[in-house]
C-alpha cells in the first residue's frame, strides 16, 4: 500500500517515464481510494500544460532585454 507521499512521487515519475506494471497497479489502487492524490494528479497535469505553453514567445512579450543591457553587450562586442 502506498503512502500519499509515495503516490505523489510516482505521479510525477509517470509524467516522465513509463512505470513498471507493479508501480502502475499500486498507483491506480491508491488513486481509487484517495481524493487528495487524485487532486494532486490533476494539478500536476494542469501545471505541466501551463508551463509547456510558457515558452511561446507570444506569452512572454513583456520580457525584454533592457536597453542598458543591450548597450553593454554591443560595447563588449566592440571590445573583442
Amino acid at each position: 500500500m502506498l503512502t500519499c507521499e509515495e503516490a505523489s512521487l510516482l505521479l510525477s515519475e509517470k509524467m516522465d517515464v513509463s512505470l513498471s506494471p507493479i508501480k502502475r497497479l499500486l498507483l491506480q489502487t491508491h488513486l481509487l481510494m484517495c481524493r487528495k492524490c487524485t487532486a494532486v494528479k490533476e494539478q500536476m497535469l494542469a501545471l505541466r500544460k501551463i508551463f509547456l505553453g510558457l515558452d511561446d514567445a507570444s506569452a512572454n512579450e513583456e520580457i525584454k532585454l533592457p536597453d542598458e543591457s543591450r548597450e553593454r553587450i554591443k560595447q563588449t562586442l566592440r571590445e573583442q
Binding site: S8, L9, S12, E13, M15, D16, V17, V40, E42, Q43, M44, L45, A46, L47, R48, K49, F51
Partner: peptide
Amino acid sequence: ASNFSVLMFRARSLLKDCFLKKGFPSLSL
C-alpha cells in the same frame, strides 16, 4: 534517472505549492 525523478518531483511540488499560495486556489484541466 533516479536523481532526475526526485528533482522533477520536488520542482513540480514547489511550483504547485507556490502557485496555489499566490492566489490560484484551484487548478483544473
